[in-house]
Design a protein around this nucleic acid. Sequence first.
RNA 1: CGGGCUGUGGCGCAGCUUGGUUAGCGCGCUUGACUGGGGGUCAAGAGGUCGCGGGUUCAAGUCCCGCCAGCCCGACCA
Length: 584
Amino acid sequence: MRWSSAYSLPMRMTQLLGSTLRAAPAGAESPGYQFLLRGAFVRQLGQGLFSFMPLGTRVKQRVEHVLRQEMDVVGGAELLLPLVHPAEIWKRSGRYDTIGPELVRFDDRRTRPHVLALTHEEVVATLAASEVQSWRQLPRFVYQIQLKFRDDPRPRGGLLRVREFTMKDGYTLDRDEAGLDEQYARIHGAYLEIFRRCGLPVIPVAADVGMMGGREAHEFMYLTPIGEDTVVLCDGCGYAQNRQVATAARPPVAEEDPLPIERVETPDADTIDRLTQVLGIPAERTAKALFMATSDGRMALAVVRGDMQLNETKLAGALGAAELRPMTPEEIEAIGAVAGYGSPVGIGTRAVVVVDELVARSPNLVAGANERGFHLANVNVGRDFSPDVVADIVAVEAGQPCAACGGPLRTERAVETGNIFKLGTRYAGLGASYLGEDGEEKPIVMGSYGIGVDRLIACIAEEHHDERGLVWPASVAPFAVHVCALGDEGLEAAGAIAENLEGEGLDVLVDDRGERAGVQFADAELIGCPVQVTVSKRSLAAGGVEVKLRSEPERPPEVVPPDELASWVRGHLEERATEAPVVR
RNA sequence: CGGGCUGUGGCGCAGCUUGGUUAGCGCGCUUGACUGGGGGUCAAGAGGUCGCGGGUUCAAGUCCCGCCAGCCCGACCA
């Protein structure tokens, strides 16, 4: 293993732009982000816009090195695609219209419409169309490490959610689904290796395909309370899915014959809570109707059992809608419904009625009457109204039984550090086709594979720190060795020692600032390079330099003769290179 | 986009309630001395359109209105 980048001279701390901060700027909440700021790895320029300082850039380069190696192992060929795209290709894929304002659109000087890339499927599909003619040119796997810009409505959490970010994105081109499955599985494995090498424990979970489109997707989740996603996990059988798509075992439904529908008076019962009080029935005997509008202008009435929550992602999928929003009061009135007393009964064709699968087979539920102050008892799906769609549209809650093994499900907050999508022929409309062995023209089958580099760095910082600062895994540390040069004697001796380490292929940062010992030690711990070397009059008198590992702050330093230093460092780095955690 | 909070020197904050002369404190920065293995001490300094614009007032960092920016929660989102 190499512990060096292409650099051959030690980095002197006096070369670095940006000084360490004793206190974190206000607004930095998570410890990982605080240390990234305090250590001068990154600085914020604007909302969701970050400068990578020299130290941060080093980390980024180390992470990218791991990404490149692992992508190359699974047959990837690196390329670089433009950040600015003619709007045309996004119009041709249809995403120009389905994606909202997070896609930045602008005209160039000749008033030709352009966009800033928020991902690169369109470009790859366009390239595939022009470059691939024959089945003999497939399969292919290309990747890049490039900027993306997404005008997110709410950047937050430091580097966790930004607008401009670096992504390692890869794209597979295959003859058929079987070929895609093969490459997908291989890259799935490469992703696990990447996260292992970066020291980040992740869980692959089944996920929603979202704006990408396609038939299958996985996300690589880092479990942390600062995460914005929720994953559903089963300790019993290993079930793991994003809450957006997760399912739980369905409870049994009452075995009853349908009773005659009945209009009951329910004053001030415009919530399920109030309704159950007024009628003295449990929430699972009620059906609640939610009013949602789709981005393509359809009105939808979603019906779930009163004790369950709607999962909007599932509903959007059931409707084939890109986006959903709650209906406005005017829209609710327009379809003849009453908020708080909404009901699918009698709504007719004024709204698309989507009924949760459990509601569809539950007899004698209490539903609204579309009339203020009244509900309908003994509503039965099929008899009293006909749903347009029956599907699982409820959100899984912690504690519900696992659909696979019956064990209790739990939920955890998580950060999505990477994702992989089986796009299939979603982008074939851009002309990506090839001539098969049988002479038939066939659509190219695509896959898409992303890892957010900045987000990955943020997660590594979150995972690897103590109360004093960062503790970078050796694989991504800005430098392998941080040399503290104490006093004039230390400063004098440190140069040769650092150069020697560099000559041995180790990246070295030398603190040549002439600061007091305490300041140097504190900054070394904040910056978090794996090996700390102290050169001073005292260490030289003792026969060499003092070494200690950032990961073992309590262990007393060891004195090592200068000519043995490189092998000492190398040995300890190798030893720790295998320590990165693996989660499944 | 909705709700909340915050904008005062490079960083962290006080001052605002109850308007009143030269706007403070800690850290950092500069210079000097001492010190020299865990953010040292002393001394002397530099550095501020108090986010921006308007208003009220004899007088605004302080009160009012508008705007902008950032942070948090929600909506949204890979």
